[in-house]
Amino acid sequence: MSLALLPSKAIRRSPRPQSLPVLDFLAPNWTSWRPVTQKARIATSAPNTSTNPPSKPLTKSQKEYLDSALRVNQAGELAAVLIYTAQTPPLTRAHPHLRPLMTHMYEQEAGHFAVFNTLLAKHRIRPTAMYPVWSVAATALGWGTALMGREAAMACTEAVETEIGGHYNEQVRVLLEWADERRKEGHTLGAELEELLGTLRRIRDEELEHLDIAVENDAKEARPYELLTDVIKGGCRAAIWVTERV
């Protein structure tokens, strides 16, 4: 529904072909994507995906990796939702034409947050112990940058999405690596992880779309651009580091 309100720039970009890993060239071992996607398509078209378990159980370290990666993802999406919630009123008051764009990005973030909430509950992963702290920090960041103006708010989005997009991309790369290893041994990844891979790709593409939107809306004009984006990027990296652990 909100799509109808979007300026043509965003409409042109948003219906990215989601089943095609168009941005996997960002993941270093991109050569391995082809067979995986074919399997993923089969898996997603099957009505009952839960009946296709991996032909070899996950190792302890793989489970630990997923545990911390999904926890970080949930925390990141919580932060994204809160940043946009805090940014929207001051920003759209000053620049009403940004409202559809902000709504579009907010709705996507709310969707991402819901995806990871479901995944955490399903796989019995604890949320980060820093949950209340991140909540306060994200709100302060969103509100603060919105008060600094449109360019600063967009620079905030640009900085956050650069880190987050890279982070999702790293996870896609790891899952592709697992798929590759398994294929060599004649094993499969299983429907659950195929589905996760698809989800991570879709969300990564949407994050990178936010990054494009921010740049098109003069994120680079923010002053002091370097300081602002460096501080926010550093903050994101620190938050990811902490969340991977607690």
Partner: peptide, 9 residues
């Protein structure tokens, strides 16, 4: 000791 629970295995 907490870890990802694979729902399918």
């Amino acid at each position: 000791t907490r870890r990802y629970h694979a729902a399918d295995s």
